[in-house]
Write a protein that binds this DNA or RNA. Structure first.
Lengths: 149, 149
DNA sequence: TATTGTTATACTCTATAACTATA
DNA sequence: TATAGTTATAGAGTATAACAATA
Protein backbone atom coordinates (compact mmCIF):
# COMPACT_ATOMS: atom_id res chain seq x y z
CA UNK A 1 0.00 0.00 0.00
CA UNK A 2 1.90 3.08 -1.21
CA UNK A 3 1.57 6.45 0.43
CA UNK A 4 0.39 9.32 -1.74
CA UNK A 5 2.13 12.66 -1.71
CA UNK A 6 -1.02 14.18 -0.23
CA UNK A 7 -1.15 11.71 2.64
CA UNK A 8 2.52 12.15 3.36
CA UNK A 9 2.21 15.94 3.24
CA UNK A 10 -0.62 15.73 5.75
CA UNK A 11 1.57 13.77 8.13
CA UNK A 12 4.51 16.12 7.71
CA UNK A 13 2.35 19.16 8.39
CA UNK A 14 0.93 17.45 11.44
CA UNK A 15 4.13 16.11 13.00
CA UNK A 16 6.84 18.64 12.18
CA UNK A 17 5.17 21.65 13.83
CA UNK A 18 4.22 19.52 16.84
CA UNK A 19 7.78 18.33 17.35
CA UNK A 20 9.02 21.85 16.79
CA UNK A 21 6.76 23.15 19.56
CA UNK A 22 8.21 20.62 21.97
CA UNK A 23 11.76 21.55 20.96
CA UNK A 24 11.04 25.25 21.36
CA UNK A 25 9.48 24.75 24.77
CA UNK A 26 12.50 22.75 25.87
CA UNK A 27 14.94 25.35 24.59
CA UNK A 28 12.94 28.12 26.21
CA UNK A 29 13.18 26.34 29.53
CA UNK A 30 16.96 26.26 29.36
CA UNK A 31 18.13 29.19 27.30
CA UNK A 32 20.10 32.03 28.74
CA UNK A 33 17.58 34.47 30.19
CA UNK A 34 16.69 37.54 28.17
CA UNK A 35 17.98 35.94 24.98
CA UNK A 36 15.29 36.22 22.33
CA UNK A 37 14.65 33.69 19.60
CA UNK A 38 16.08 35.91 16.83
CA UNK A 39 19.15 36.60 18.97
CA UNK A 40 19.66 32.90 19.48
CA UNK A 41 19.17 32.17 15.80
CA UNK A 42 21.76 34.83 14.98
CA UNK A 43 24.23 33.18 17.33
CA UNK A 44 23.69 29.81 15.66
CA UNK A 45 24.14 31.38 12.24
CA UNK A 46 27.37 33.10 13.24
CA UNK A 47 28.61 29.85 14.75
CA UNK A 48 28.10 28.11 11.41
CA UNK A 49 29.35 31.01 9.28
CA UNK A 50 32.28 32.59 11.12
CA UNK A 51 33.17 35.99 9.78
CA UNK A 52 29.64 36.56 8.44
CA UNK A 53 28.18 40.04 7.93
CA UNK A 54 25.23 42.01 9.29
CA UNK A 55 23.44 41.66 5.95
CA UNK A 56 23.79 37.89 6.01
CA UNK A 57 22.49 37.76 9.56
CA UNK A 58 19.52 39.86 8.46
CA UNK A 59 18.75 37.54 5.57
CA UNK A 60 19.10 34.36 7.56
CA UNK A 61 17.24 35.47 10.67
CA UNK A 62 14.55 37.19 8.64
CA UNK A 63 15.02 40.82 9.67
CA UNK A 64 15.72 44.03 7.84
CA UNK A 65 19.29 45.23 7.85
CA UNK A 66 18.69 48.01 10.40
CA UNK A 67 17.02 45.56 12.78
CA UNK A 68 19.85 43.08 12.35
CA UNK A 69 22.30 45.88 13.09
CA UNK A 70 20.52 46.64 16.36
CA UNK A 71 20.34 42.96 17.23
CA UNK A 72 24.06 42.46 16.58
CA UNK A 73 24.82 45.55 18.63
CA UNK A 74 23.01 43.97 21.57
CA UNK A 75 24.95 40.72 21.18
CA UNK A 76 28.22 42.65 21.03
CA UNK A 77 27.31 44.60 24.15
CA UNK A 78 26.68 41.33 25.93
CA UNK A 79 30.07 39.98 24.91
CA UNK A 80 28.57 37.11 22.93
CA UNK A 81 29.76 38.32 19.52
CA UNK A 82 32.79 40.23 18.24
CA UNK A 83 32.44 42.81 15.46
CA UNK A 84 35.63 43.68 13.63
CA UNK A 85 36.44 45.40 10.35
CA UNK A 86 36.56 43.20 7.29
CA UNK A 87 40.14 42.67 6.06
CA UNK A 88 39.54 43.72 2.44
CA UNK A 89 36.09 45.39 2.20
CA UNK A 90 36.00 48.31 4.59
CA UNK A 91 32.23 48.67 4.34
CA UNK A 92 31.65 45.27 5.89
CA UNK A 93 32.05 43.99 9.41
CA UNK A 94 33.30 40.58 10.45
CA UNK A 95 31.15 38.81 13.03
CA UNK A 96 32.32 35.92 15.20
CA UNK A 97 31.25 34.29 18.43
CA UNK A 98 33.19 34.93 21.60
CA UNK A 99 33.99 32.01 23.86
CA UNK A 100 30.93 32.99 25.83
CA UNK A 101 28.71 33.07 22.78
CA UNK A 102 29.93 29.67 21.69
CA UNK A 103 29.28 28.31 25.16
CA UNK A 104 25.69 29.59 25.07
CA UNK A 105 24.99 27.94 21.73
CA UNK A 106 26.69 24.67 22.53
CA UNK A 107 25.13 24.34 25.95
CA UNK A 108 21.66 24.88 24.52
CA UNK A 109 22.24 22.41 21.74
CA UNK A 110 23.61 19.77 24.07
CA UNK A 111 20.72 20.10 26.47
CA UNK A 112 18.22 19.83 23.65
CA UNK A 113 20.02 16.82 22.22
CA UNK A 114 20.02 15.12 25.61
CA UNK A 115 16.32 15.81 25.99
CA UNK A 116 15.59 14.42 22.53
CA UNK A 117 17.79 11.37 23.05
CA UNK A 118 15.93 10.56 26.23
CA UNK A 119 12.56 10.74 24.50
CA UNK A 120 13.83 8.73 21.53
CA UNK A 121 14.96 6.06 23.94
CA UNK A 122 11.34 4.90 23.92
CA UNK A 123 11.84 3.66 20.37
CA UNK A 124 13.57 0.47 19.28
CA UNK A 125 16.88 0.53 17.47
CA UNK A 126 15.08 -0.38 14.28
CA UNK A 127 12.59 2.43 14.73
CA UNK A 128 15.33 4.97 15.33
CA UNK A 129 17.14 3.78 12.24
CA UNK A 130 13.93 4.22 10.28
CA UNK A 131 13.33 7.71 11.67
CA UNK A 132 16.88 8.78 10.88
CA UNK A 133 16.77 7.47 7.34
CA UNK A 134 13.31 8.89 6.69
CA UNK A 135 14.24 12.34 7.96
CA UNK A 136 17.24 12.48 5.69
CA UNK A 137 14.99 11.70 2.75
CA UNK A 138 12.49 14.27 3.94
CA UNK A 139 15.15 16.92 4.15
CA UNK A 140 16.40 16.17 0.67
CA UNK A 141 12.97 16.48 -0.87
CA UNK A 142 11.60 19.42 1.10
CA UNK A 143 14.73 21.55 0.89
CA UNK A 144 15.36 20.51 -2.68
CA UNK A 145 15.21 23.56 -4.95
CA UNK A 146 16.32 26.51 -2.87
CA UNK A 147 18.81 26.05 -0.07
CA UNK A 148 19.65 29.08 2.03
CA UNK A 149 23.24 30.10 2.60
CA UNK B 1 23.68 -1.27 12.21
CA UNK B 2 21.35 0.22 14.83
CA UNK B 3 21.00 3.94 15.34
CA UNK B 4 21.77 5.28 18.79
CA UNK B 5 19.45 7.70 20.51
CA UNK B 6 22.18 10.33 20.26
CA UNK B 7 22.58 9.90 16.51
CA UNK B 8 18.86 9.99 15.97
CA UNK B 9 18.49 13.09 18.16
CA UNK B 10 21.16 14.81 16.11
CA UNK B 11 19.25 14.11 12.92
CA UNK B 12 15.94 15.26 14.39
CA UNK B 13 17.48 18.51 15.63
CA UNK B 14 19.01 19.05 12.22
CA UNK B 15 16.03 18.22 10.01
CA UNK B 16 12.95 19.34 11.93
CA UNK B 17 13.94 23.01 12.29
CA UNK B 18 15.11 23.09 8.67
CA UNK B 19 11.80 21.75 7.39
CA UNK B 20 9.96 24.09 9.73
CA UNK B 21 11.78 27.08 8.26
CA UNK B 22 10.70 26.07 4.78
CA UNK B 23 7.10 25.64 5.93
CA UNK B 24 7.10 28.99 7.68
CA UNK B 25 8.55 30.75 4.65
CA UNK B 26 5.88 29.15 2.47
CA UNK B 27 3.08 30.13 4.84
CA UNK B 28 4.43 33.64 5.13
CA UNK B 29 4.35 33.98 1.38
CA UNK B 30 0.64 33.16 1.29
CA UNK B 31 -0.91 34.19 4.57
CA UNK B 32 -3.42 36.97 4.87
CA UNK B 33 -1.48 40.20 5.16
CA UNK B 34 -1.01 41.73 8.59
CA UNK B 35 -1.83 38.43 10.27
CA UNK B 36 0.92 37.70 12.78
CA UNK B 37 2.17 34.23 13.67
CA UNK B 38 0.51 34.22 17.11
CA UNK B 39 -2.74 35.40 15.54
CA UNK B 40 -2.60 32.58 13.03
CA UNK B 41 -1.78 30.04 15.71
CA UNK B 42 -4.77 31.26 17.71
CA UNK B 43 -7.02 30.77 14.69
CA UNK B 44 -5.75 27.21 14.24
CA UNK B 45 -6.30 26.50 17.92
CA UNK B 46 -9.85 27.85 17.86
CA UNK B 47 -10.55 25.84 14.74
CA UNK B 48 -9.52 22.65 16.56
CA UNK B 49 -11.18 23.58 19.86
CA UNK B 50 -14.43 25.32 19.04
CA UNK B 51 -15.88 27.16 22.00
CA UNK B 52 -12.45 27.53 23.61
CA UNK B 53 -11.65 30.33 26.06
CA UNK B 54 -9.21 33.24 26.20
CA UNK B 55 -7.20 31.43 28.89
CA UNK B 56 -6.84 28.35 26.72
CA UNK B 57 -5.74 30.47 23.79
CA UNK B 58 -3.16 32.12 26.05
CA UNK B 59 -1.80 28.79 27.21
CA UNK B 60 -1.66 27.25 23.77
CA UNK B 61 -0.21 30.23 21.91
CA UNK B 62 2.23 30.99 24.72
CA UNK B 63 1.00 34.40 25.86
CA UNK B 64 -0.19 35.84 29.12
CA UNK B 65 -3.94 36.15 29.55
CA UNK B 66 -4.00 39.93 29.02
CA UNK B 67 -2.03 39.59 25.81
CA UNK B 68 -4.30 36.82 24.60
CA UNK B 69 -7.28 39.02 25.39
CA UNK B 70 -5.85 41.79 23.22
CA UNK B 71 -5.03 39.33 20.45
CA UNK B 72 -8.54 37.88 20.49
CA UNK B 73 -9.99 41.37 20.46
CA UNK B 74 -8.05 42.08 17.26
CA UNK B 75 -9.34 38.87 15.66
CA UNK B 76 -12.91 39.74 16.66
CA UNK B 77 -12.55 43.24 15.22
CA UNK B 78 -11.39 41.69 11.96
CA UNK B 79 -14.44 39.40 11.85
CA UNK B 80 -12.31 36.26 11.98
CA UNK B 81 -13.53 35.13 15.41
CA UNK B 82 -16.77 35.40 17.34
CA UNK B 83 -16.77 35.99 21.11
CA UNK B 84 -19.97 35.09 22.92
CA UNK B 85 -20.91 34.47 26.56
CA UNK B 86 -20.44 30.97 27.87
CA UNK B 87 -23.77 29.18 28.38
CA UNK B 88 -23.20 28.14 32.01
CA UNK B 89 -20.16 30.02 33.35
CA UNK B 90 -20.74 33.72 32.95
CA UNK B 91 -17.10 34.60 33.60
CA UNK B 92 -15.97 32.80 30.48
CA UNK B 93 -16.28 33.63 26.80
CA UNK B 94 -16.91 31.21 23.98
CA UNK B 95 -14.61 31.64 20.99
CA UNK B 96 -15.36 30.30 17.52
CA UNK B 97 -14.18 30.96 13.99
CA UNK B 98 -16.36 32.90 11.62
CA UNK B 99 -16.72 31.64 8.06
CA UNK B 100 -14.00 34.11 7.15
CA UNK B 101 -11.68 32.87 9.87
CA UNK B 102 -12.22 29.30 8.81
CA UNK B 103 -11.49 30.25 5.21
CA UNK B 104 -8.21 31.88 6.20
CA UNK B 105 -7.03 28.82 8.10
CA UNK B 106 -8.16 26.30 5.53
CA UNK B 107 -6.74 28.22 2.59
CA UNK B 108 -3.38 28.50 4.28
CA UNK B 109 -3.34 24.83 5.18
CA UNK B 110 -4.35 23.72 1.72
CA UNK B 111 -1.71 25.84 0.06
CA UNK B 112 0.95 24.51 2.40
CA UNK B 113 -0.20 20.94 1.83
CA UNK B 114 -0.08 21.42 -1.91
CA UNK B 115 3.41 22.86 -1.64
CA UNK B 116 4.57 19.95 0.50
CA UNK B 117 2.95 17.37 -1.73
CA UNK B 118 4.74 18.79 -4.71
CA UNK B 119 8.11 18.60 -3.01
CA UNK B 120 7.38 15.10 -1.70
CA UNK B 121 6.63 14.03 -5.24
CA UNK B 122 10.39 13.74 -5.66
CA UNK B 123 10.32 10.67 -3.39
CA UNK B 124 9.26 7.16 -4.33
CA UNK B 125 6.08 5.62 -2.96
CA UNK B 126 8.19 3.45 -0.70
CA UNK B 127 10.11 6.44 0.61
CA UNK B 128 6.92 8.35 1.33
CA UNK B 129 5.53 5.35 3.17
CA UNK B 130 8.71 5.22 5.23
CA UNK B 131 8.59 8.94 6.00
CA UNK B 132 4.97 8.74 7.05
CA UNK B 133 5.51 5.76 9.30
CA UNK B 134 8.68 7.18 10.80
CA UNK B 135 7.07 10.54 11.59
CA UNK B 136 4.22 8.84 13.40
CA UNK B 137 6.74 7.01 15.55
CA UNK B 138 8.66 10.22 16.10
CA UNK B 139 5.54 12.02 17.23
CA UNK B 140 4.64 9.27 19.65
CA UNK B 141 8.04 9.30 21.31
CA UNK B 142 8.73 13.04 21.36
CA UNK B 143 5.28 14.07 22.52
CA UNK B 144 5.08 11.15 24.89
CA UNK B 145 4.71 12.45 28.45
CA UNK B 146 2.86 15.74 28.21
CA UNK B 147 0.43 16.35 25.41
CA UNK B 148 -1.09 19.80 25.20
CA UNK B 149 -4.81 20.29 25.06
C1' DT C 1 25.94 54.30 -8.91
C1' DA C 2 25.41 50.32 -5.84
C1' DT C 3 26.32 48.24 -1.43
C1' DT C 4 27.27 47.88 3.70
C1' DG C 5 26.15 49.42 7.87
C1' DT C 6 24.26 52.78 11.27
C1' DT C 7 21.03 56.15 13.48
C1' DA C 8 16.32 58.35 14.22
C1' DT C 9 11.62 57.76 14.61
C1' DA C 10 7.24 55.49 15.01
C1' DC C 11 4.50 51.46 15.49
C1' DT C 12 3.28 46.85 17.09
C1' DC C 13 3.33 43.32 20.34
C1' DT C 14 3.71 41.69 24.90
C1' DA C 15 4.15 41.74 30.00
C1' DT C 16 3.01 43.53 34.61
C1' DA C 17 -0.21 45.61 37.53
C1' DA C 18 -4.69 46.73 38.81
C1' DC C 19 -9.48 46.08 38.31
C1' DT C 20 -14.39 43.97 37.56
C1' DA C 21 -17.43 40.24 37.49
C1' DT C 22 -18.57 35.62 38.53
C1' DA C 23 -17.88 31.01 40.72
C1' DT D 1 -11.21 33.01 48.16
C1' DA D 2 -10.17 31.68 43.44
C1' DT D 3 -10.88 32.15 38.54
C1' DA D 4 -12.04 34.46 33.77
C1' DG D 5 -11.48 38.34 31.41
C1' DT D 6 -10.45 43.29 30.57
C1' DT D 7 -7.99 47.81 30.69
C1' DA D 8 -3.85 50.89 31.51
C1' DT D 9 0.78 51.57 31.30
C1' DA D 10 5.46 50.66 30.03
C1' DG D 11 9.12 48.15 27.73
C1' DA D 12 11.16 45.44 23.95
C1' DG D 13 11.59 44.52 19.06
C1' DT D 14 11.08 45.71 14.40
C1' DA D 15 10.28 48.46 10.13
C1' DT D 16 10.75 52.66 7.33
C1' DA D 17 13.35 56.57 6.19
C1' DA D 18 17.46 58.99 6.01
C1' DC D 19 22.26 59.06 6.24
C1' DA D 20 27.59 57.98 6.05
C1' DA D 21 31.25 55.43 4.23
C1' DT D 22 33.16 52.50 0.86
C1' DA D 23 33.22 49.76 -3.51
Amino acid sequence: MPTSSAQCAQTVLDVVPAVMRVLRAEMRRHRAPALTVPQFRALVWIEGQPGTSVSQVAEHVGLTRPSASVLVEALVRRRLVTRRPHPTDRRRVTLDLTAGGLAVVQASRERTLAFLAERLGALSDAQRAQVTEALIGLRQSVLAPADES
